[in-house]
Design a protein around this nucleic acid. Structure first.
Lengths: 114, 114
DNA sequence: GCTATAGTTCACCATATGGAAAACTATAAT
DNA sequence: ATTATAGTTTTCCATATGGTGAACTATAGC
C-alpha cells in the first residue's frame, strides 16, 4: 500500500486548476517572465504568484531570477511522469478487458460444443 | 481564454489524492463493491465515500447499486482525456524544442560560412 | 537621484477539503 | 422477527486553497 507518491500528488494537484494549466500551455511555447505570464488573467499578482509557486513546488516548472525579472520554464519530465501513470492504468485496464473478452469467447465456444 | 474545462479540472483534482489513485489502480482490475474498495484504507466509511463521490463526479468511475451493495466501475475514457491533454502539451513542447534546435544548428552553419 | 517597473510579503477572508463520530436506512441471512 | 451487513446522512472540526488590498524591495531607465 505504498501509494504515497508526492510527485504525482503535487503534479495532479497543480494540473487541476485552469489558470495553472493555461500557464503550462503557454510555457510549452517557450520561457516567459512572470509579468507576461500573468497578463491574460483577471487576478492580482499575489494570487498569480501563488499559482506559480504551486507549479514550481510540483516540479512542473522551474524559475530563475535575472535582475528584477523572474523567468519561468516548463519541466516536461514531470508532465511525462503524470502521463506515464495514466497510460499505465489505461494499459492495465485494457489487459483486463482483453482477458475478459477472451474468456467470454471461450465460454461461447464451449457452449457450441455441447 | 476559454480555458475553462470542467472535465479536466475535476479529473486532475480527483487524481491528486493518493487514496483516490489507489482506488483507480484497484478498479483497473475489475469492478468492486464499496466495502471491498475501502478495506485497505485506514479511514471511516463516510470519509471513503467522499472520495468515491469525488471520483464519480469527475466521471472517472461510475457506480450502480444492486440490493444493498454499490458496485464501482472504472470509466477509462476519462483517464484518456487527461492523458490526451498531457501528451498534447508534451508534443507542443517537443515541437518548440525541435524548432529551437534547428535554428541553433542553422546559426552555427552560418557562422562557419563567414 | 528620481521614478517606473517587476516582483514580493503580509494580513486577511470565504470557501473547499479530508477527516471523525454518531445515528440512521435498507437489504440479506437465520 | 431478529440480527448482521452495506451503505448513507448529518454534524462537526482543522487545515488548505484561491483570492483580495496595502505596503515593501530591488533593479532599470532617464
Amino acid at each position: 500500500m505504498e501509494n504515497y507518491n508526492f510527485t504525482l500528488d503535487t503534479a495532479f494537484h497543480a494540473l487541476a486548476d485552469p489558470t495553472r494549466r493555461a500557464v503550462i500551455n503557454r510555457l510549452v511555447e517557450g520561457d516567459a517572465p512572470v509579468k507576461k505570464l500573468a497578463e491574460p488573467f483577471d487576478m492580482g499578482l499575489p494570487a498569480f504568484l501563488k499559482h506559480l509557486r504551486v507549479l514550481e513546488e510540483s516540479g512542473l516548472i522551474t524559475t530563475r531570477k535575472c535582475g528584477r525579472v523572474r523567468t519561468c520554464r516548463l519541466q516536461p519530465k514531470r508532465l511525462s511522469d503524470a502521463e506515464a501513470w495514466l497510460s499505465e492504468q489505461r494499459e492495465l485496464w485494457q489487459a483486463g478487458a482483453d482477458r475478459l473478452a477472451a474468456y467470454v469467447e471461450n465460454q461461447m465456444r464451449e457452449d457450441d460444443d455441447e
